[in-house]
Amino acid sequence: MHWPGGYGDKRIEELSRLLTVSFFAALFASGIRLAIPIFLAALGEIVTERGGVLNLGLEGIMLAGALAGFMATYYVEQSANASLLPLAPWVGIAAGIVAGMAMGLIMAVLAVSLHTDQVIASITLVILGQGITTYIFRQQFGSLTARITGFETLPIPLLSDIPFLGEVLFSHDIMTYLSSLILIATAYFLAQTTWGLNIRAVGEHPAAADTSGINVTVTRYVAVLIGAGLAGLGGAVLTVAQLGIFNENITAGRGWIAVALVIFARWRPGLAFAGALLFGVANALQFRIQALNLEVIPYEALLMLPYVLTILVLLRKVNKSEAPAALGTPYVKE
């Protein structure tokens, strides 16, 4: 690290020029976008954990969703039929959800039906997910760099013209808008619907739930599958709506960050969104500082930021009673 003569002043000048309204608008806008995949996975995990199942396999599930979404979109886009083109990213999103649920089914069988240790089962699921996505991607694409178009940005008429807020909130792709609806729907589902109540019941006190006529096994399967579907969706959003490419381990720890966010959020959907936003904005900031090419901060230090931040947010004390009481424990009928 060094400060060549006269260099610092110029950089500071450049920095101050950057710290304008448009800088912050762009920062928050891309922060929201970057938050979405992590948020969706964390939201799914909240449903799963509220049902008493600890599924740490999000990283593998997101990867499966990311690859399935990418490939489905790619093949529809490549098909000669031009009328199918607008459908392509939607097919990708659906494929991502299905792939996520397929991975979730493996987890559910192991954790819910077979009572396998949930930590071990889900770590294995991550490694399997990493292997299988790398294998399929290499087998299908070799070392070819394939790109997909995915979703276009969809500025909302009038609203997107509002200064600052228009760029931050109303100039995204459709999946970003939909994610806010998914947040509301999931929060409502957990709090207000019978299925949501059942899921929380089997996560708090499965024996009592069983006595009152709730099928614990089926309910936990549903909780795992919803969670895995949302994680798969998060992976698909990453490739289909945001990056347009796939690479091995493209999720780069987002699944694990989502696991941490669930703890940070005290198993509450709204807080998970806030936590994901924190990550998104930190990541967006990190990219922008990288683009400045400041020699005093090595870009590797910036790249570590999300991972350091994950450890930092966990420092917030968790009250044991806030976690679902039966989290991680298989239900054995007496």
Binding site: I106, V109, L110, L114, T116, D117, I120, A121, T124, L125, I127, L128, G129, Q130, G131, I132, T134, Y135
Partner: peptide, 13 residues
């Protein structure tokens, strides 16, 4: 890696 993951998955099961 796929085979390794599958092997362990089935051992667990």
């Amino acid at each position: 890696q796929v085979i390794q993951g599958l092997v362990v998955l089935f051992v667990l099961a």
